[in-house]
Design a binder for these strands. Structure first.
Lengths: 171, 171
DNA sequence: CAGTTTATGTCAGCCTTGTTGACTTTCCAA
DNA sequence: TTGGAAAGTCAACAAGGCTGACATAAACTG
C-alpha cells in the first residue's frame, strides 16, 4: 500500500520502486516458473534414455572442462562424492564418460566425454540453447545483459567464482 | 571463432552477437548457479524444521492465493496429486495449513495458511526476498526489467499464464 | 432418478538423487 | 616412513518425484 502511494506521488523514493516486496515476489516466481521451462526440454531427452538431471549436470561440466577432476566437479556441483560417484559410475559403465588416471597425480581421475557422451551432450545442450536463444532474441540484448547481471548477483560467492571461471578468456 | 571475428569487425551481424553458442552457454550456467543461490537460504530454514522445497512451494502459492483449491495448486506446481497430497497432509497435520470444504462446491478443498503457517511463510519469503533485493539493488532497475523479460520468455506458455495471474492488478 | 464425471484422498510400490557414516586403497609430500 | 589427501565403495536412509488402482462424495447430465 505504502509503495503504491509512493508510486503515484512520484516522490524521491521512486528510483527504489523496483525493490518493493511485490516486485521481489514477482522476481521469485519468475525464477520458479522459468527454471521449470529451462529444464523441461533436457528432462524429456534424459527420461527417454533413463537418465536424470544429475547426469545432465555432470555431462555439461565435463564437456565444458574436459579433463576436470572428480574433486573439481564436486565443488562445482555441490553434492557429496557418493552422490556424484553413483552418477559417474553409470556414465562410465554406459560408455559416455572416460575416467583417465592422472599422470602427475595418479590418485586423480580426469574426466572426458567419449564420442557417445558428446552425442548426448549435444542433444541436451542444443535443446536448452534453442529455448535460451529464443528467449534472448525475443527479449533483446539489453534485457539479456540485465538478466545476467541479476543472476550473477544472486549467486553465492563460491558459485560465482565457478561461473566466472567458465568465461572464455581466449578472445 | 567466427563470432569473435565478427565482433572485432563490427559488421552488421553485430546486433546478434548476444546469441552465439558461447553466450547461450553462459546464460545456461547463470541459471544453474543462480538457482542454487535462490534456494539456498530457504533450504536452510526448511531443513531446520524438517520440511523440504516441496513444502515451501505449497506454502508460497497458498499464501499468494488464499483459498486456492487443490486442483489449482496442482496445475501451478506441475506435480501429481499423490505428491502434492503427501506434502499438504503433513502441513495440515502440523497445523500450518487449513483445508476448508467448499461452500458452493463441497468436493473442493480451499487452502489457507494458519497463523503458524504464516510465520513459516514469512521466514522463508523474507530470506528469499533479502537475497533478491540485494541482487536487484546491485544490478539496478534496468537490469531487473531485463531479468524479468528473459525469464518470462523462458517459461512454458502454461506456466507463463500462471505467472501473469500473479500480477497485482489492484494498483 | 440413474449414470457419469469431477475433485479429492489414499494405498502400494518404484525410481532418482540427495544425505551420513564407516572403511579401504592408493600414493604424494613432509 | 608416516600422515593425510584423493578416490572409491558399501550400507542405510529420506525426500519427493512417478504410476496404477481404488474409494468417496458431490455435482452434473440426460
Amino acid at each position: 500500500m505504502a509503495e503504491r502511494t509512493a508510486s503515484a506521488s512520484m516522490g524521491r523514493g521512486d528510483t527504489l520502486l523496483f525493490l518493493t516486496d511485490d516486485h521481489l515476489r514477482r522476481g521469485i516466481e519468475a525464477m520458479f516458473f522459468a527454471y521449470r521451462g529451462f529444464t523441461a526440454d533436457p528432462d524429456r531427452i534424459l527420461a527417454e534414455q533413463g537418465y536424470g538431471r544429475a547426469h545432465h549436470r555432470a555431462v555439461h561440466f565435463i564437456n565444458r572442462s574436459p579433463g576436470t577432476t572428480v574433486n573439481n566437479l564436486l565443488s562445482i556441483l555441490g553434492v557429496t562424492k557418493q552422490s556424484l560417484n553413483r552418477v559417474l559410475r553409470t556414465l562410465v559403465e554406459d560408455g559416455l564418460v572416460e575416467a583417465r588416471v592422472g599422470t602427475r597425480d595418479k590418485r586423480e581421475r580426469h574426466l572426458f566425454l567419449t564420442g557417445e557422451g558428446e552425442v548426448l551432450e549435444r542433444a541436451l545442450s542444443e535443446a536448452q540453447r534453442n529455448r535460451m536463444r529464443s528467449a534472448f532474441r525475443n527479449a533483446g540484448p539489453d534485457a539479456v545483459a540485465g538478466f545476467r547481471a541479476v543472476l550473477e548477483e544472486m549467486m553465492d560467492p563460491d558459485m560465482r567464482r565457478h561461473y566466472l571461471d567458465g568465461v572464455d578468456h581466449n578472445q
